[in-house]
Structure formats: structure tokens, C-alpha cells
Amino acid sequence: MSQKLEKLIDKKGLRLDGRKPEELRQIKIEVGIILNADCSAYIQQAKNKILAGVYGPRELHPKHLARPDRTVLRCRYHMAPFSVQERKSPAPSRRDIELSKVMREALEPSIFLEYYPRTGIDVFVEVLQADGGTRCASITAASLALADAGIPMRDLVVACAAGKIDNTVVLDLMDTEDKKGSADVPVALMPNFNAITLLQMDGILTHEEFEKAVNLALDGCKRIYVMQKEALKAKYESVKEVEE
């Protein structure tokens, strides 16, 4: 972090990929593309290509993990060996384990877990290509997959990161900005409740910059939320068209 070798923001105030500081990357979301999974979602955010699939509620194995009063949500965040510059071993890294945990904790508040006692819901996320901000994109996709699976939810969970590069607080960091910038703040939100379900940070920020970054990330979340809802509707609209 904080290696200021090259400029991340040019004189016109534009970033390496030509974005303004408060601009999101191109996002494409699709719902229901893996036929086998109970439900699935795909998100593409610049070079990020992420698949999320949901199985369940179903019988939980091993059985001793089952809870008499609620379902057990399990998440697995995994990166394909070819998703990054240097081959990543397919075995789960410590980072993968931490991200699986924070992802689960980001999604749990949105689900009515008590509706399916003694069962388990499995969420699998595969990062096919990583370009910075994969945990946020994963959460956005996973939440859609859960919704598409018909699991009763309070709200969708949407995530977006803000950060600091070249002394400027910016939205939605890409890989280079994440590595060379000075801070990264991923945030997940249930927009209808204004409830933050994930918050992490690494880097150095003053109190004021942190406040600004959180506000910017929340704003980004709300913008992605619109696209998320559209993607969900789009699946059912296409079904309707076929019927007609």
C-alpha cells in the first residue's frame, strides 16, 4: 500500500480507466443462468466476472450442525486459479476463509432464517476473474441468487467499496487502485432499512475521510441496488414473454 510511484488520478481528475472519482464501473447482472443450482446469478463489473449459486434450503450435512430453530447459512467464496495474474492455488486461502465468513455475516441479516429450521442453505461464489472489489460484487450476486431461489428475505443486500487514491476519496476501486491506493472501505447495505451488514477497512484514513468514504460507498450501494432489482425483474419478464 501507499506506493505512490505512478499517478492514479490525472490532471483532469480522471482515473486510470477514465472514470470520475464518484463513478461506478460498468456493471452487468444476470439472474438464473446455472440450470442445476436452485438459483444463480452472474455479475460482471469491469473485469470482475463472478458466479453465485444457491442450493437449499435442504438437509444439512453433517447433521449435528443443524439448528432446531433456524436454517444454517453457509457461504463459500472461492477464486479460480486463473482468476488472477499469478496462478492461485485452488485450496482455500486464509483470505478466502475470512471473506466467506464476512460474506455470510453480510447476507444473514437479510434472510428469515427461522422459516426453515433444521435445514441448511449453501451459497457458493466462484470468482472467475478478479479485478478488485470481488467481495462486494460477490455479495451483490449472492443476494440476488438467494432472492431468485425464493428464500424469504427482508431486503436484498448490495455491496460497494469506496477508497482513497492520490489523496482523493473515490468510489468502486479497481484492482490497481486497490493495490496502489491508500485505503479501501467495502460496505454492504440493506437499502430499505439503511442497515449496514458489512464494513471493513484497510489502509489509512482520517476520521473525516472515513466518513466521506462510507457515505460514498453507501451511495454506490444504492445505485447498484437499482440494477440489482432490474436484473431480478428481467428474468421473470423474459419468462412472461415466452409464455405469451
Binding site: 464476512v102 455470510r104 455475516e105 444473514e108 441479516p109 472501505v185 440493506m190 432499512f193 439503511n194 442497515a195 449496514i196 451488514t197 458489512l198 464494513l199 471493513q200 477497512m201 484497510d202 489502509g203 489509512i204 484514513l205 482520517t206 476520521h207 472515513f210 466518513e211 462510507v214 457515505n215 453507501l218
Partner: peptide
């Protein structure tokens, strides 16, 4: 936080939620 009052790492844990106001209060 470091001695200059800068925040250098944050981690939320557990499956509840925070409001924006609570987050800023916690930082303080």
C-alpha cells in the same frame, strides 16, 4: 487507530447490522 487518530483497519463481525450513525459514533 494509530496515535495520529487515523483509522487503519476496520472489521465488522457477527450477523447484525449497524446504521451509518452508529458506525461514525463507534469510530469516535
Amino acid at each position: 487507530t494509530d496515535e495520529d487518530g487515523n483509522i487503519c483497519a476496520i472489521q465488522k463481525g457477527g450477523s447484525g447490522t449497524f446504521t451509518q450513525k452508529q458506525v461514525l459514533e463507534a469510530a469516535k
